[in-house]
C-alpha cells in the first residue's frame, strides 16, 4: 500500500518535472535568438551614443582590442572598441576606471577620435552620492557632454582639471571629488590614446569584400 503510493507520487513528480522542463525549454528555444539580439543591442547602445552609426560602418562589438589590467586604471582586462570606416579606424572607445571617486571606483568609457579629440564620455558604473556626485551620470545631468570635442591641446594638459584646482572644467554644485576623478581619468585616456596612437588606430584587415562581422569571437 505504502509502496504503491510512493511509486505513484514519484511518477507524478517525474511527470510534472518533465512537463515544466519541456515548457521552459520550449520558451527558451523560441526566445533564444531574440534575447541574443536584444543583448547585443543593449551592449552596443552606449557605444553608438559616442560614435553614431553615420561615423562608422563596422560592428564595434566585433572589432575589439584587449586592454590588460593596470592600463587606464583597470582592475580587470577589458576591451577597447574600434569604430572603422572602411579599413581606417575613425575612433576608439576605451574602457577607463577612475579609482578615486567619492565612494569607490567609477567605470567609464571614453571615445577618442583619430585626431585626438574626445568623441564622448559615459559613466557606466558608480556609487557616488545621490544628488551630489551622481551628476556625472548622463541620466542626472549633461555635465559629461562638456568633454565632447576637447583634446589635450584644448585646454592644455595642465588645465585638464576642475576649476577649483585651477583647471578649465566646471565642477558641479556641491561636489568636487567626483568631477575631479572623471576629468583626470578622461585626461588619462587621451594620453593613452596619444602614446598608443599607432597601435589603436592601425588599419584593419583588408575588408574589400564588405565589412562583414569579423570572426574574432571576443565575446
Amino acid at each position: 500500500m505504502l509502496g504503491q503510493s510512493i511509486s505513484r507520487n514519484s511518477l507524478l513528480l517525474g511527470v510534472f518535472a518533465v512537463i515544466t522542463t519541456l515548457l521552459i525549454a520550449g520558451t527558451y528555444l523560441l526566445t533564444r535568438d531574440r534575447i541574443a539580439a536584444a543583448q547585443r543591442q543593449a551592449e552596443e547602445k552606449a557605444l553608438l551614443e559616442i560614435v553614431p552609426d553615420e561615423r562608422h560602418d563596422n560592428n564595434m562589438l566585433d572589432d575589439t582590442l584587449a586592454i590588460p589590467p593596470g592600463e587606464l586604471g583597470l582592475k580587470q582586462p577589458r576591451s577597447a572598441y574600434i569604430a572603422r570606416r572602411g579599413r581606417q579606424a575613425a575612433a576608439v572607445i576605451l574602457p577607463v576606471t577612475a579609482p578615486d571617486g567619492y565612494s569607490g571606483a567609477i567605470d567609464l568609457i571614453v571615445g577618442v577620435n583619430r585626431d585626438g579629440t574626445v568623441a564622448g564620455v559615459r559613466v557606466l558604473n558608480h556609487r557616488e552620492t545621490p544628488g551630489l556626485g551622481d551628476k556625472v551620470d548622463l541620466n542626472k545631468s549633461d555635465w559629461v557632454l562638456g568633454f565632447d570635442g576637447r583634446s589635450l591641446d584644448d585646454p592644455s594638459v595642465e588645465r585638464w582639471a576642475v576649476k577649483k584646482d585651477g583647471g578649465a572644467f566646471d565642477q558641479f554644485t556641491g561636489a568636487t571629488i567626483t568631477p575631479r576623478a572623471v576629468v583626470t581619468a578622461t585626461r588619462g585616456a587621451l594620453e593613452y590614446a596619444r602614446t598608443r596612437h599607432g597601435e589603436l588606430f592601425a588599419d584593419g584587415p583588408d575588408t574589400a569584400t564588405q565589412p562583414a562581422p569579423a570572426d574574432s569571437g571576443a565575446h
Binding site: T27, T31, R34, A42
Partner: peptide
C-alpha cells in the same frame, strides 16, 4: 522562468 525569458526577449 518562462516570463523572465519573455521579458528578456522583448523588454531587455
Amino acid at each position: 522562468t518562462c516570463i523572465e525569458l519573455l521579458m528578456q526577449a522583448f523588454t531587455y
